[in-house]
Design a protein around this nucleic acid. Structure first.
Lengths: 344, 344
DNA sequence: TTGAAAGCGGTACCAT
DNA sequence: ATGGTACCGCTTTCAA
C-alpha cells in the first residue's frame, strides 16, 4: 500500500490532495527527475528496467495524472488549438465542419478545445483566449480585428486563422463571405425573371451577423436591374410564418430568399397553407443545402456553400504553426453556387 | 516607449517573447508583487493611485495578458469546466442545450470549454480531461465509468456530472435514457393498434450509441404484446431511403419508428414517393421534436425530450463545486412524451 | 543510471 | 504602500 506521509490533519479521506510527480517519486523511491524520464519515455536518457517498473507501478497505484498547465508552463508552449464556440447554436453544416477540423487536428496531435466566450466581444474575447496561451486559434465569423490578432500573436499564438467576410490583418484566413450567399441567390432570382424579391431576416438575435450580409448581398445583386428588395422580418415559429403568409398577397412579391433552408422551409409551408403556389406565384430559394431541402415538394432551390475540408484547415494550421514566418495572407476563398431545384 | 532589455540576438522583430508580469514590473518600476496586486485589484492591499496608473499603463503598453496556466498552477485550482464535445455532429436540440449551459456557466464566472477528445475512449479520455485539472466536468452520454469518475475526482475535479442512461458511481447526474425514447415511441404505436413495427437504425457510425438503446426500447415496449420489431438499417441519403421504400411492401410493416425526426422525414418522403400512404398504410413517428416535423404533411408525430434548462445544470454544477460533500447521486430524471400529430 | 536544482509565470505571505 | 521571496508541478540541464 501507499505510504502516506504524515500530515497535520487530512481534511477528509476522500479529499486527499492530488498526487504529483513528487508523490510518485517518493513511492517509487526515486527522484522526480527519474519519474519524468520514465513517464515521458525520454530517449536521451536510459533508465533501468526495474526502475521503470517501480515508477510505472507507483504512478498507477496513486492514479497519477500529469498536470498539463505545469507542463506547458515549463515547456513554454502547448499544443492547444482554440476555436471560439459560435454565439448561436450552430447549423448542421457548420457543426459537421467543426467536427472534421477537430478530428484532423487531433490526428496531428493537437489538443482542440472550443471556448465558450459568450458575452465577450471582439478584442475582449481575444484577450480571454490569449490567457490560455494557445498555439493556434481558429476564429469563425467576423468580430476579430487586427488588434485582436496582435494580442493573440503577442501571447504566443503562432497561427491565427479567421473564417470571415474579409481578410484580417496579420491573420491567415479562409474567406467566407455571407454577403456572397445573398448575392448569388439574388442573381439567380433575377435571372429567373423575378422582380419583386423578398428577403427573410430572422428575428432571432445573434443571427444578424449572417442575415445582414446576406441581405446586403441580395441588394447588390439587384443593382442596375429594375428589381426591388423587401425585408421580411420573421421569427422561427409557425405562427409568425402564418402571419407573414397571411399578408403575402398585399406585399406583391414574386420571389423570396429565405435566409437559409430552414427559414425557407418554414415560409414555404406557410405560403402553401395560404394557397400560394411555389414556384409559380412565388419563387423560393434557401441556403446551406441541407438534406431537408431535397425532401420538400417542390424541392427547395438553395445556395450551396463550398466549405473547405476540415482536413485542409487543419493542415493549414499545422503548417503555419511549424513555420509562422509564412506570408500571413488570406489564401483561400470559399465558393458558393446555386443548387437549382424546383422551388425557383 | 518600451525599454527592451538587451538580448543576444532577437530571433525576429515580430517574434519577441511574450511579456510577463516581470516585464510589466520592470517597465513600471515596481515589483512583480505590486503588479499582481494592481492588476487583480487585491483588496487586502492598498496601492497608491499613481502607482496603479503606472502599472496599468505599462501593462497596456506591453500588451500584457496574464498566463492562465501559471495562475491556476499557483492558485491550486481553476474555474475551468470541461464538456467533452460529442463524437458525432450534434443535433440541433443538443447544440442549443450546450449553448445554454455555456451561457449559464459563464454567468457564474466559469470558463467553459468543449474538449474534442476524438479517438479517445472511456477512461483514457477521462485521463486526458484530468490533465487539464478542470474544477468540473459535464459528460454527455455513456462511456464514462466509475473508474473515469475516480480519475477525475482524484485530479481535483470537484463536480462530475453525467448525462446518460444510468447513474455513474461517484458522479452526479441527469438521467437521460435513450432506451426510454424508443419505449414510449413503441408503446405509442402499439396503442394505436400497430403490430408490425419497423425501427430505423442509422448506418452512420457513431450514432449507434443512441440508436442501440432506442431500438432496445421499442423491443421492450412490444414485450407481452403480439407486435413484432424489425430493424431497418438506413443511411442518411435519398438513395438509401428510396431503396428501402422500394421493398417496403414486401416487409409487411404497418408502422415505423424513424430513430429521429430527420430520418423519419427522409423515410416518409421516400414512402410517399413510392405511393405508400402515411399514416394509413404505415404510421411514422420520429423523435427530438424538431421544427421540421411540424412542417411536414402529414405532421410528424414525435418523441419530445424534456431537457433540463441549461440554467439548471449550471446551477447544479455550481452547487456541487461549492460543496462537493453533497450526496453524489443522480437526482433528476429527464422525461419523454409522445407528441402525437398526424403521421401515426 | 540517477539526483540536485533552476526556472517557467504568477500569487500571497511577511517584512520593511 | 511596497518589495522580497517561497512555492505551485513539471522538465531539463549538469554533476555525480
Amino acid at each position: 500500500m501507499v505510504q502516506i506521509p504524515n500530515q497535520p490533519a487530512p481534511p477528509s479521506p476522500a479529499q486527499r490532495s492530488v498526487p504529483t510527480s513528487a508523490d510518485v517519486a517518493r513511492l517509487a523511491g526515486v527522484s522526480r527527475a527519474t519519474v519524468s524520464y520514465v513517464l515521458n519515455n525520454t530517449s536521451a536518457v536510459r533508465i533501468s528496467e526495474p526502475t521503470r517498473r517501480r515508477v510505472h507501478d507507483a504512478a498507477k497505484e496513486l492514479g497519477y495524472v500529469p498536470h498539463a498547465a505545469a507542463r506547458s508552463l515549463r515547456a513554454g508552449h502547448s499544443r492547444l488549438v482554440l476555436m471560439p464556440a459560435p454565439h448561436v447554436p450552430a447549423n448542421p453544416l457548420y457543426s459537421a465542419f467543426i467536427y472534421e477540423v477537430q478530428w484532423a487536428l487531433s490526428r496531428l496531435d493537437y489538443t482542440v478545445v472550443q471556448y465558450g466566450s459568450i458575452g465577450l466581444h471582439g478584442d475582449e474575447a481575444a484577450r480571454a483566449w490569449a490567457e490560455l496561451r494557445p498555439v493556434a486559434v481558429i476564429v469563425p465569423g467576423a468580430g476579430l480585428g487586427p488588434k485582436g490578432v496582435a494580442v493573440l500573436k503577442r501571447s504566443g499564438a503562432r497561427a491565427v486563422v479567421t473564417m470571415g467576410p474579409e481578410p484580417v490583418e496579420g491573420a491567415h484566413g479562409m474567406l467566407l463571405d455571407h454577403h456572397e450567399v445573398g448575392r448569388v441567390a439574388g442573381a439567380h432570382l433575377v435571372a429567373r425573371g423575378r422582380r419583386r424579391i423578398g428577403v427573410v431576416v430572422p428575428a432571432e438575435r445573434g443571427l444578424s451577423i449572417y442575415s445582414g450580409p446576406r441581405l446586403d448581398g441580395v441588394r447588390q445583386a439587384v443593382q442596375d436591374t429594375d428589381a426591388t428588395v423587401t425585408e421580411l422580418p420573421l421569427a422561427y415559429e409557425e405562427k409568425a410564418a402564418a402571419e407573414l403568409a397571411g399578408r403575402w398577397r398585399s406585399l406583391g412579391l414574386d420571389a423570396v430568399f429565405g435566409y437559409n433552408d430552414e427559414y425557407a422551409m418554414l415560409l414555404t409551408r406557410a405560403l402553401q397553407d395560404e394557397g400560394i403556389t411555389v414556384p409559380d406565384q412565388t419563387a423560393v430559394i434557401g441556403a446551406d443545402d441541407l438534406m431537408l431541402g431535397r425532401l420538400l415538394r417542390p424541392r427547395l432551390s438553395t445556395v450551396h456553400m463550398e466549405l473547405p475540408a476540415g482536413r485542409d484547415l487543419a493542415d493549414l494550421v499545422d503548417r503555419v504553426v511549424r513555420d509562422p514566418g509564412g506570408v500571413p495572407e488570406t489564401n483561400q476563398v470559399l465558393g458558393f453556387r446555386v443548387e437549382h431545384r424546383e422551388s425557383s
